[in-house]
Every structure is written in structure tokens, then in C-alpha cells.
Nucleic acid binder design. Structure first.
Lengths: 140, 140
DNA sequence: GTCTTATTGGGAATCGTTCCCATTATGACA
DNA sequence: TGTCATAATGGGAACGATTCCCAATAAGAC
């Protein structure tokens, strides 16, 4: 199917906008919405369109560079993620400021797979997100 | 704040539409979207508006009668749920047909709380959903 | 039966996201 | 360094789910 290298599936051009989106994400360790990133970039005088922001965000996700999580209200938020598909992990996210801590729960993974198998489900994946108030936000 | 009984926060009138929405949900053990429920009801000749469907679905959730889960694509789906807030549980959901199995994972709950506490997070809640293909769908 | 008011519903409005497509600019090659 | 094919861009239209608004309707108490 894919004759290219495993990490980079398709040829991709380097553009200012792509770099700008990545930088914007890299600047914070919080999950941010596309609209949010777009607003920030424009505020910084960056010349970029909303479509382009969405486009790059999606590319990052496809390339395994970023994680997405859907907020309870349905909005998608993105965050750059250490290294690609090497480590499967989840997040502890602050409901208020969006700050996120990467967490791992090997036990959860095996539990999920076991439960799925017991019920005859295949091609399984799961979402585990923990929402709360971080210490800083709770204090204010 | 609320001088009423603990289970039923506000006085609510019994209407045909409310009953119809509940019936529609009760008829299936799958998570269904508001649009889906609406379409079904209209197809059955029910006289009801989309707004009303959304309204009742939300009421069920508020009253703890139904569970919501947000599909990866962002759509909200609802399902009636045994009894209100007595049992906290999660779901194993078929990506294809929406069929859901209620599952419990006490270990997950304690793990989530522990991780949150370790990171100074308070007012914690979590979402754990397992998506897969049920045996029936995998066969076809 | 009457009256108060919760409920309804249909269309407008919102909001996030995707699509379309003419314009722009990257990168390869001469 | 100039030329060219085409990937990338962006802005506005289009979309789908959900919410809002408000005049008309109907539930239930007296």
C-alpha cells in the first residue's frame, strides 16, 4: 500500500504556515482547539487561514505527532505529543485551563482488551480521559 | 438551592412526546443520536419536533435516566440506563451498529482517582469508552 | 370548564468543521 | 538562476449537529 518510509507516509512541502501551527502547539503543554490556535496565530500577525490550521492539525494527528481529545462539549483539541506511535498513553486534563499530563495505565489497556474479547468484540480501541481541576486552577 | 426531592429536581409535565422519546430509546439497546431518534419517531408517524427530541434527551441525561457518549466524530448518542446514579459504569460500544454492553471496572475507577490525586487534580471525573466491532458486525 | 403556565415545534441562528477552487509559492530540474 | 508542475493556501460557501426564539398548544390544578 505505502511504498514510502514508515514514519512519513506522503511527500510534504515545508511551508511557513505548517511551521507556525506546529510552533503554536509547541508553545503550550495544553490541549488547544483549532479556533484557539487560529486566533493566537492571527493575533501574532501570522498570515494564515482557518482552513490551513485545521489542515495541519489533522496532518499532525495522521502523522502521529499530535493527540486529539474531544472535549465533553464536542470540540476537538490538539496537543503535540512526544514521539509518534511508540507509546500509547492517555491524559489527565484540566477542565479549566486545558493543561494536560500524560499518563499511562498498562492495567487499563489489558483490562479493556480482556473485556472486549470476552464480549466477542474485535478491532478494539478505547478512549480514556480524566478531567479535573489542576491545583493552580483550583486555587484561584 | 433545590427544595424539591432529590431524584426529581423540578416538576415535569407528562406529555406524549416525552413518552415517545423514552419509548424510542427503550426499544433498542444501542446508543442512538438525536437525529436518529427523531427520524424514527417521524417515520412512525409520531408528531414531534426535533427541538423536542433534543430537549427530552437532555432531560433524561440530567435526571440520570440516560447515558451519553460522544462518538469519535463528535456526534452525541444516548441510551437509557438501568437505574440512575446508583451504578457508575462504562460501555463497550460497537463502532458499526452502536450496540453497547455495560461494563464495570472498579480498578479503573481507583486508578483514575489515584492518578488525579497524585497530580494535584480535584473535582475529577473520567470517560472510558471502548469501541470495537461486535461479533455480529464482524461476521458480515 | 377555566386559567396558569409548562411544553411544543418550526424556522432562524450558532458553531465547529469541511469543501471548493482560483491563486500562490515550494522544490526539482535544467 | 530561471522555469515548471503541482502541493499548499485561504476565504467564503456549504454542512451537519445543536441551540435559540417565541407564538401556539395542551397539561393539570382549582
Amino acid at each position: 500500500m505505502a511504498p514510502m518510509a514508515p514514519t512519513q507516509q506522503v511527500k510534504r512541502r515545508a511551508t511557513n504556515q505548517g511551521a507556525a501551527v506546529k510552533e503554536a502547539l509547541a508553545a503550550e503543554d495544553t490541549f488547544r482547539s483549532a479556533q484557539d490556535v487560529y486566533a493566537t496565530l492571527r493575533a501574532n500577525g501570522e498570515k494564515i487561514g482557518l482552513s490551513t490550521v485545521y489542515r495541519h492539525l489533522q496532518i499532525f494527528v495522521d502523522d502521529g505527532l499530535a493527540d486529539v481529545i474531544h472535549k465533553p462539549d464536542g470540540e476537538s483539541t490538539y496537543r503535540l505529543c512526544g514521539d509518534a506511535s511508540t507509546t500509547h498513553h492517555h491524559h489527565l486534563v484540566c477542565r479549566s485551563c486545558g493543561k494536560a499530563v500524560e499518563i499511562e495505565g498498562p492495567a487499563v489497556e489489558t483490562w479493556a482488551d480482556k473485556v472486549a474479547a470476552q464480549n466477542g468484540f474485535t478491532d478494539v480501541n478505547h478512549t480514556v480521559e480524566i478531567f479535573g481541576l489542576c491545583a493552580a486552577c483550583a486555587a484561584s
